[in-house]
Each structure stands twice: as structure tokens, then as C-alpha cells.
């Protein structure tokens, strides 16, 4: 019998991977994810009655956004080289589909597995810009990216 209590909690993001470019996936130069933030959002429209009270709501959109803070590194599954660290630091092309895998499976609205989806999967994560690389003179570089996953975009294949 337990004499000290504790609670089952989800800890760390160990095992979770983010491949932002095909080159990174080939080199397995995964960035070292430090923290992330998942947000679930709709585009909710309100209808008011003649007294100004909201009497109905309508959702026109559903999407997830995920922001990551990370350290670009070589050696995370690939050769431990500065060259691979630079591959890891590469920001993808705007509107690229990226791959996230190995994260804890959690649901968010219509998304039964909110985090994990391959770039070729259904409703992939899309990089829409706002990536940032922090150049530091006396410490390691860090970087951040913002990704979005929209319920209406079912494929990451560009229409040409």
C-alpha cells in the first residue's frame, strides 16, 4: 500500500519529434524541443436579438495552432555534426506541410490526435511563417516556429 501519494501527470515531451523539412527528416537532424503550446480555436459568429443579447452562435472554422521553442542540434538520431545542426535550424518554405510524431495522443475538438500527423497525412500541420532563429553570441542558438492545422485543409499537397 502506498504510504506517499502522487498523481499521474503528463511530463516532458520526450519522444516527440518535429521534422520541418524533408532534408531534416532525411538527416534525422531533429530540433531539440524545449517547450510547446497548443491552441484550439474556432471562428465563432454571434447573432444578437433586437435587445442586443447573443441568442445564437455559429462556428465557421476550426483549427489548431502550435508554437514550439527549440534548440537546433545535430546528433538527434543522425550524425552529431554542426552541419546537421544547421539542417535542424532550417526554416521551411512558407505553406510547407511538416511532420510531428511521437507526442502524447490528446484530442482537441474534431482532431482525435491533435499533435501527431505526418506531412502527407490528413489535416497536416502547415508552416505559415513567423519562424524565428535567435542568434546568440555567448550561448547556443535557439529558434521558434508557429504551425497551424486546419480542419478544412485535408492535404498538404500544393495545388499547382
Amino acid at each position: 500500500m502506498a504510504t506517499l501519494l502522487g498523481k499521474a501527470q503528463i511530463t516532458t515531451i520526450d519522444g516527440g519529434t518535429l521534422y520541418m523539412t524533408a532534408a531534416a527528416q532525411t538527416a534525422t537532424a531533429k530540433p531539440n524541443l524545449q517547450s510547446g503550446s497548443l491552441t484550439h480555436t474556432g471562428d465563432v459568429k454571434e447573432t444578437k436579438n433586437q435587445s442586443g443579447q447573443v441568442t445564437s452562435l455559429f462556428n465557421a472554422e476550426e483549427f489548431l495552432s502550435c508554437d514550439f521553442e527549440m534548440v537546433p542540434e545535430g546528433g538527434a538520431g543522425g550524425a552529431n555534426t554542426i552541419a546537421n545542426a544547421k539542417v535542424s535550424a532550417t526554416l521551411p518554405a512558407i505553406l510547407s506541410a511538416v511532420t510531428m510524431s511521437g507526442f502524447a495522443v490528446v484530442g482537441a475538438g474534431s482532431f482525435t490526435d491533435a499533435l501527431n500527423v505526418n506531412s502527407t497525412g490528413t489535416n497536416p500541420w502547415i508552416y505559415e511563417g513567423n519562424g524565428k532563429i535567435n542568434l546568440v553570441s555567448d550561448d547556443k542558438w535557439t529558434m521558434s516556429v508557429e504551425l497551424k492545422r486546419r480542419i478544412g485543409i485535408t492535404s498538404g499537397t500544393a495545388v499547382t
Binding site: A2, L4, L5, G6, K7, T11
Partner: peptide
């Protein structure tokens, strides 16, 4: 380390 004095599954 983060620990607790109970078995967590």
C-alpha cells in the same frame, strides 16, 4: 527528477 511515492501507470 520528478517522483512520487506511489505506483503510477
Amino acid at each position: 527528477m520528478m517522483v512520487c511515492g506511489a505506483d503510477i501507470s
